[in-house]
Amino acid sequence: MNSVILRAGTRYLAGLLLLFSLYMLIRGHNEPGGGFIGGLIGSTGFVLFAVACGTADARRALRTSPQNIAVAGLGIALLAGLAAALFGDSFLTGQWLFVGATETTKGLPISTVLVFDIGVYLVVFGSVLTLVFAMEEEI
């Protein structure tokens, strides 16, 4: 895969896919999308990057190892669940804060549910990349 065009193109494509994946993640609660889909899209971008430019470059671009991302995602999901305990609810009960809510609009919703979905995103993203990088390198 030593095409110059592919290598040049994927840098932008991977970035776009990553951006798109975040969009899918954020909108997931109200429209098709969410952590699973976002994570898969994001990892697809990096897989493309790894195929075009090699895993070494992809790893550098990622800054940390994908295993760390996966485990951190699991930890974030766990913390999002535990946060409910602060409010006296049982594990994983969603907690909501509506920033700037008025009589008519709900304002900007911030919730532990979103944090949980971010955890899911990171788990899927990190796990897929762990697998793909390892297979690219070892096989």
Binding site: G34, L74, L92, F116
Partner: peptide, 22 residues
């Protein structure tokens, strides 16, 4: 507070299942 029922099930109603799955 979610309009995508599937996603709400995944991250809220049945979040414990999802947690096990991830």
């Amino acid at each position: 507070f979610g309009r995508n029922i599937v996603n709400v099930i995944l991250v809220d109603f049945r979040a414990l299942d999802t947690f096990g799955e991830i």
